[in-house]
Design a protein around this nucleic acid. Structure first.
Lengths: 233, 233
DNA sequence: TCCAAAGCAAGAGCACTGCTCTCTTTTTAG
DNA sequence: CTAAAAAGAGAGCAGTGCTCTTGCTTTGGA
């Protein structure tokens, strides 16, 4: 019939997302280690071997979940950025960072999957790389915008880092001063260090008021990047 | 006989360390997910059930490896600190951070185990907590020493963070100014963010000269903590 | 010195896992 | 209408963590 071809494809897509949803549920509840293909199939009322028609292996299912997690985190960050669109670059910077933190606290196991450790056979397809850089690009955009409007402060970099800074600037955003690019990349990593430490319990008997602490730390990092004009628009 | 009692205990200790060594080997080769009790027993020429006399479960074995990993990392950091004993606080700071990075690159799976994600049943016994804070205490010591000798710079903290800073200072090192304590805790997390990003591949097509980059980033973090006199002794 | 108690190794077995293979049924496309 | 492709079902393999029972050895106290 006319929609026959589409019917199959649609059914396949439905089953695929059903599998991923159930897998995500188990991931959120028990963690990546306890995620079981057979349990997913069981819950969906299908036999385990049928699941292999959709994902050739457990690692492939995990990879799909990783990509989705990157997208989910990126979307949360972008939403926060859109909400804070009409404010200072520094405020937007903090807003995006806070969104990442909240997302991580809401999805701890997914965060561990993407920023914790390369659990499966440690491969990173291009799709993964692209999805992974979404938050990074967002932060870069904030700094670029600040550079265009109110300007950014430059902290000198050592001579030995000059070539790296030039190369990185060309790849990331040729518009930005190399000193700022360098600081930006470092800042990105540092923000995730803060999130990871809180999430993985390193702050357990150390930091109490974590939200306030995070805002403080992330503001300082933003300042380090060159976002030094918090009052101007 | 006289050493009979000691003989048993010694044998037990030998077997225990043999198990841990073999487990660590498999951990280094394949990662925590692939670490198998049966494979460890097989490699040691013993039957799998015998292994349960030494470790009541797989998670307990992993926990033991985690504690050892914390100790190993702490020792590497302390050695680096001792080597740089007669230099500037900032130089010592950088040296310790670099030692942590090198250790992490040499033991990626162990690093993932302790700073990546709480793989097992997510429990943190007191022994773990103590071992975990070793590097943190070392960094605190460097800052304290700087405070006593050349002095540290203070960056003001927001009023809402004041109580947290007071409490934290009392717990960590009452001698230090609260502003510095706050910056120190943040710095600690940020350093691990840098290490984790490099280790887990987030710098893959981004940063090339990672050693130089790390030294730069970590120096700036040290500066942020208040280690601002790199030339004085 | 002897002997009960504790420590330890071995083996069988259970429930579970990822994954492969074969067989049958259904759906698609020429 | 029919050949090919896609999907489901079931059995089965090798591996896992873990438990239980059975014997053997070492230990510490009477």
């Amino acid at each position: 019939m006319s929609t026959a071809q589409g019917a199959r494809a649609r059914a396949r897509l439905e089953v695929t997302t059903a599998i991923k949803d159930e897998a995500r549920r188990q991931l959120a509840e028990e963690g990546a280690a306890k995620l079981s293909l057979r349990a997913v199939a069981r819950e969906l009322g299908m036999v385990s071997s049928a699941l292999y028609r959709y994902f050739p292996s457990r690692d492939d299912l995990l990879t799909a979940l990783i990509i989705d997690a990157y997208d989910s985190a990126g979307e949360a960050a972008e939403t926060a950025h859109a909400t804070a669109a009409n404010t200072t670059p520094l405020r937007r910077w903090v807003a995006v960072c806070e969104a990442v933190r909240v997302w991580a606290l809401d999805h701890p196991h997914e965060y561990a999957l993407i920023y914790g450790s390369p659990v499966p056979g440690y491969k990173a397809p291009d799709t993964t790389v692209r999805a992974a850089s979404r938050v990074g690009l967002l932060l870069t955009g904030i700094v670029r915008d600040a550079h265009r409007t109110v300007g950014v402060a430059r902290t000198p970099i050592p001579a030995e880092l000059r070539p790296e800074a030039e190369r990185l600037t060309a790849a990331l955003d040729p518009e930005l001063p190399p000193e700022v690019t360098m600081a930006l990349v470092a800042a990105w990593a540092q923000v995730y260090g803060l999130v990871g430490f809180e999430l993985f319990g390193q702050f357990n008997r150390v930091v109490e008021d974590r939200e306030t602490f995070f805002r403080y730390a992330v503001s300082r990092i933003g300042h380090e990047v060159g976002l030094v004009f918090p009052e101007k628009a």
